[in-house]
């Protein structure tokens, strides 16, 4: 019963429709496609990084708990060039906790003990307050819970510690579990929106 003309007409129409639909999709999306494909934390949205909310008790630890990897792909990173190298580092010590006999806080803040503290330079052995310290984050321990980021944040600290996606670990899930549960939509695909921010909004200049 197939009329060859009619069949060919349908074929041709369908084919053209498909081509136009695909082309249209390509044009619409190609215009604003970005070259990279990665998840990133938008600093001005992340409650742990952005200014305003302070104190490790306010921390949001979705990045630590929700990643599909056994140890989250989000890690804290200390930018040594911006670190104040403080003796009583609120990101290293639990400053609200009890004091030890040496006048320094007795407990550490990091629940996984992932921050390594080393006195650097010409070390004064008698006065710990007269020394500079290097704080390095042990990647194998850090799970990106963000407590240290909250404590080091401006204005209390210098904001040298940030949460970053470690791209050597991130498997770049299309349905990122952290992004699903991020309360502020701070965990986004890198893209042309929003415009790049050089500094944190409201930061000290």
């Amino acid at each position: 019963m197939n009329d060859p003309d009619r069949r060919q007409f349908l074929q041709r129409t369908g084919r053209t429709t498909c081509a136009v639909a695909l082309g249209g999709t390509g044009i619409v999306l190609g215009r604003r496609a970005c070259s990279e494909d990665a998840w990133a934390i938008v600093p001005n949205k992340c409650v742990n990084i952005r200014l305003g909310v302070t104190g490790s008790e306010q921390v949001c630890d979705v990045c630590a708990t929700d990643c599909v990897l056994p140890l989250s792909a989000v890690r804290a990173v200390n930018d040594h060039a911006e670190c104040g190298r403080c003796c009583i580092c609120p990101a290293y010590y639990d400053v609200r906790g009890p004091m030890g006999p040496d006048g320094l806080p007795a407990k550490k803040l990091c629940p996984r003990d992932a921050i390594v503290r080393t006195p650097i330079g010409e070390v004064d052995p008698y006065d710990p307050l007269n020394n500079f310290y290097e704080y390095t984050i042990d990647e194998s321990k850090c799970n990106g819970c963000g407590r240290c980021v909250m404590e080091c944040k401006d204005p209390a600290g210098l904001g040298s510690i940030r949460l970053e996606v470690r791209y050597d670990l991130c498997v770049c899930c299309n349905q990122c579990s952290i992004a699903q549960h991020c309360p502020e939509e701070a965990y986004c695909r890198i893209g042309p929106q929003p415009a790049p921010a050089r500094t944190l909004e409201g930061g000290h200049v």
Binding site: G84, I88, P90, V95, R96, G103, L104, A156, G157
Partner: peptide, 15 residues
């Protein structure tokens, strides 16, 4: 003065 977070006579934080 010395470090302390709880007593207002002390100075808290990093600096």
């Amino acid at each position: 003065g010395h470090f302390g977070m709880n007593d207002p006579a002390d100075f808290g934080g990093c600096c």
